[in-house]
Nucleic acid binder design. Sequence first.
RNA 1: UCCGUAGUAGCUCAAUUGGCAGAGCAAUCGGCUGUUAACCGAUCGGUUCUUGGUUCAAGUCCAAGCUACGGAGCCA
Length: 445
Amino acid sequence: MAKIVKIKDIADYAGQVVRVRGWVYSRTGKGRLQFILLRDGSGQAQCVAFKREMDPAEFETARALTQESSVIITGAVRADERAPGIPGGYEIGIQSLELVQQALEYPISPKEHGTEFLMNNRHLWLRSNRQWAILRIRATIIKAMRDWLDSEGFLLVDTPIFTPAAGEETTTLFEVDYFGEAAFLAQTGQLYNEANSMAFGKVYCFGPTFRAEKSKTRRHLIEFWMLEPEIAFCSLEELMDIEEGLVTYVVGQVLDKHQQELKMIERDVQKLEAIQAPFARISYDDAVARLQGLRQQADDLPAREEIAIEWGEDFGSPQETALAEMFDRPVFVYHYPTAVKAFYMTPVAGRPEVCRSVDLLAPEGYGEIIGGSERIHDHDLLAKNIDEMGLGREAYEWYLDLRKYGTVPHAGFGIGIERTVAWICGLNHVRETIPYARLLNRKYP
RNA sequence: UCCGUAGUAGCUCAAUUGGCAGAGCAAUCGGCUGUUAACCGAUCGGUUCUUGGUUCAAGUCCAAGCUACGGAGCCA
């Protein structure tokens, strides 16, 4: 019995007879010669069926294979520069072929399809080359983030999905019935992270978060994954160092491990190679001034209106894009107006109208991929903010406790996985960065 | 929620002034010993998003609705 091998490894078996198991990605024939492009999840290899080298019944089976039929193929590996595949260059001369199932008419043909159709068939679309490449890069991005944090002394500490109260705004919560009481799906793990950081020093959580926002854009999901580090005894400047280290490591790992996938999705690799420390760090004041200056230079009126901004306003996506385009790598914008940021962010000493917050804007119009801040560690100020926001003191008693028992300056941030994947892969929508996107109008499949 | 665009075969699209519902791909059958989204011949394939209206006649015109896509706000 021939050895079962992964298609990605077949080059190691040149001249040997192996067994591969997978699905027919495509088939073309020339009569007594059939080319079967087989994928097995690890890669794709061309398997060649010659009528005179096979059992006649098995050849007929090969000749009739439909797209996505499942088969087990035994044959000899040989180098052939004409052979397509992933990685390609080697093919298998079929000696025998066992049909597991003859697939019914497969909905996703090699021709182009519309978004709605593809999303309705997401469970099958995942089998396509482009999706295969993107989701492998996603896995590497997540692994690289965790590897880097682990190596820097962070501890993974999980935070709950069911929560009794809001993390940020109360308008974007999913309410669920918790044995007769209201509970909410987590929109951040941050408050728990703060408690955990007081126990373990440097922590992070990684999991899904939920926001019931009625936003329908290329960068929003209802359910998205976020990685959130939190560090005790940390300043905003030190936080930026950490973010910079994390992001450059992640991009480096993708470049290191996924040249093949980046090529498949036609990503401009040079743009990624430019992602090196240090990233520019500009204040909100400076950012507003730059945007206003840019606006005066803008020729056409619509463009001018788009990036219009007054001090005190948060950036919309046109402003974020315009700012990011001034740099060839991500840019930090710090000290946002306190009024547009969350209740737990520390005011700047002597200038309480701005706070110790920092966003990281990705290049090429991908917008904010990280939001972070120094957290308020003074009990009375935090309590005052909670009251003023009308959040209800009861649900936050435990959070205020952290400021009673050995409070320390601390900071943390959240990085959105899907936006990061979209940026690194150069995609125009986050829906392809997650296996099953949850969007405003979609929860199927 | 607001603004804009679209909905025709399984998929991607066409259909002139309101006048017989079309093509490519997929599927099925046949042919072909090096295909790269192969090619050649044939077959199969329709609630033209829904409801109502105008008309001798509606895919096309009118009204309402539904769905999707793109953008905005908000955010990671």
